[in-house]
């Protein structure tokens, strides 16, 4: 794995981690119990993917998946602003879900062609689960496509797909404070 490969794996891992964290915020308060269960599953998948990708990179860098996920400063994360936003409006959550899954599919397709068998294998494995996320996103897209609030959300969020990864929204720093709060309460290396 060269440096640029490690960098692109980290980008995907950070996207999946932060989106997984955001999606998990729906647990317990989604519009339908069925969606509560669905979004929770999606969140678990995304975090599972993040963990597998971090493990690959961590193996190369002599660190651990947890250290990569939690022990960097917010500005060191390589995720897109699209996944950082706290969107507890269903139309915006679904718009992000739809946009993200499309972009993620294209990226995974490339990764599946990697010369590194480990990377290609992991990408294929991740893609098998993402296929269900895409079906879920498509189902909701079809349901909401005529709702003005949904089309407005798509228009608002679409530009973020190309917004780059060097600048982060303030919401990432807020999320980071919360997601590392318990972990930071004890000295580094403490088991949880």
């Amino acid at each position: 794995m060269n440096e640029s490969e490690a960098r692109s794996l980290l980008e995907i891992a950070d996207d999946e981690l932060i989106l997984g964290w955001r999606d998990s915020e729906w647990t317990g308060i989604a519009p339908l119990l069925e969606e509560d269960v669905a979004f929770s599953s999606i969140a678990q998948n995304e975090i599972g993917h993040a963990r597998a990708l971090y493990e690959l990179v961590a193996g190369e860098q002599g660190t651990t998946a947890d250290e990569l996920a939690f022990d960097r400063a917010p500005e060191e994360y390589r995720c897109t602003r699209l996944v950082e936003l706290r969107l507890l409006d269903w139309e915006k959550t679904i718009a992000r879900h739809y946009l993200y899954e499309q972009a993620d599919a294209a990226r995974l397709e490339q990764l599946k062609q990697s010369d590194d068998a480990e990377i290609a294998g992991l990408a294929a494995k991740i893609d098998r689960e993402e296929a269900y996320h895409r079906m879920h996103a498509q189902m909701w897209f079809d349901r909401l496509k005529d709702e003005p609030r949904f089309t407005a959300a798509l228009d608002e969020l679409r530009p973020l797909l190309d917004a780059g990864r060097d600048e982060h929204s303030p919401e990432l720093a807020e999320l980071w404070v919360e997601m590392t709060m318990v972990r930071r309460s004890q000295p580094a290396g403490t088991a949880w």
Partner: peptide, 12 residues
């Protein structure tokens, strides 16, 4: 506490 879980395993 879902947002504050201190490791990936605990979060999952």
């Amino acid at each position: 506490w879902i947002l504050r879980a201190p490791t990936l395993q605990r979060k999952l």
